[in-house]
């Protein structure tokens, strides 16, 4: 037998060599693709023009600070929407779960609400609420597109978030409910202390994905007024007759959403591992 590094089992030596091999292959093929793109794309006839209007270094440097500034507004709208969406989403999920006949209207409302707002494109809700309600002639500050734009996002997203919470609630095994009931706990305590904490833990990865989608959809508010990053990029585009500001905006979004997506995937993988 060949000699092996001290302290390693046969299996570990074998797995190491496998790993080294696959790393070399993956690295080599990635390098080949990147080289092909870098060499071939600039050879295409329109490349010079595309480069000038989409990847213009000068425009990049000029617009980046202003765009980053506008992005702060996106973050702010996002930040105050999230707690509202979480609270409303949870309330709707719980409303859909009530069994008391007196509260039947609440249950019905929950069902209609989730069907309605999941059935209409976000951008339409943004238009209808964002233009429609201030159009009623409300006094300042109640005619602000910030408020009604946020309301539109909250309405749509809480419908999705509610359904995710509900799937989490239903995934908690009935034996947990029974165990809690058998101790003499009231139905609302069973929900609050036994079912909900387990349900919420299970849906955290799914809700993270909703947050990522929301972060991007904040840009839709640009259609009704607020000068957030997407609208600011549009302003620069007209001003400079150049598309680079959009690329800058996309890059800024990616810096936030890519780590968030990775984190969500990591949480999902971790959860799958712990359940198997």
């Amino acid at each position: 037998m060949a000699s092996r590094p001290a302290g390693l089992t046969r299996r570990q030596v074998y797995e190491r060599s496998l790993k080294r091999r696959s790393l070399i292959i993956a690295g080599g093929s990635t390098l080949a693709v990147v080289l092909a793109v870098v060499i071939l794309v600039p050879l295409s006839p329109g490349w010079e023009k595309v480069k000038l209007s989409f990847f213009n270094g000068e425009v990049f440097v000029k617009t980046f600070p202003k765009l980053l500034n506008a992005f702060v507004l996106d973050l702010a709208i996002f930040a105050w929407s999230v707690p509202l969406i979480a609270a409303l989403g949870l309330a709707i999920a719980l409303a859909r779960d009530v069994r008391n006949p007196v509260l039947y209207p609440l249950r019905l409302f929950g069902a209609v609400y989730t069907d309605l707002f999941r059935g209409v494109p976000v951008v339409l809700v943004v238009y209808l609420v964002g233009f429609g309600i201030p159009g009623l002639g409300l006094p300042r500050p109640w005619n602000s597109p910030y408020i009604w734009g946020t309301v539109a996002l909250v309405l749509t997203y809480s419908a999705y978030v509610a359904e995710i919470f509900r799937s989490g609630i239903e995934s908690v095994h009935n034996s947990q409910r029974n165990a809690a009931l058998s101790l003499g706990l009231a139905g609302k305590d069973v929900m609050r202390f036994v079912v909900l904490p387990q349900a919420i833990r299970r849906v955290i990865p799914a809700q993270m994905n909703m947050l990522i989608a929301l972060q991007k959809d904040v840009a839709l508010l640009s259609f009704i007024g607020p000068v957030e990053i997407f609208r600011q990029a549009g302003v620069f585009k007209s001003l400079l007759a150049n598309f680079t500001p959009y690329v800058v905006a996309a890059a800024i979004f990616l810096v936030v959403t890519v780590p968030a997506t990775r984190l969500a995937d990591y949480l999902i993988a971790k959860q799958n591992r712990s359940r198997s």
Binding site: S175, Q176, N178, A179, S182, V194, Q198
Partner: peptide, 11 residues
């Protein structure tokens, strides 16, 4: 009551 499958609250 105590059940076959314990049913402790895992959290």
């Amino acid at each position: 009551i105590v059940f076959q499958s314990f049913n402790l609250f895992p959290h």
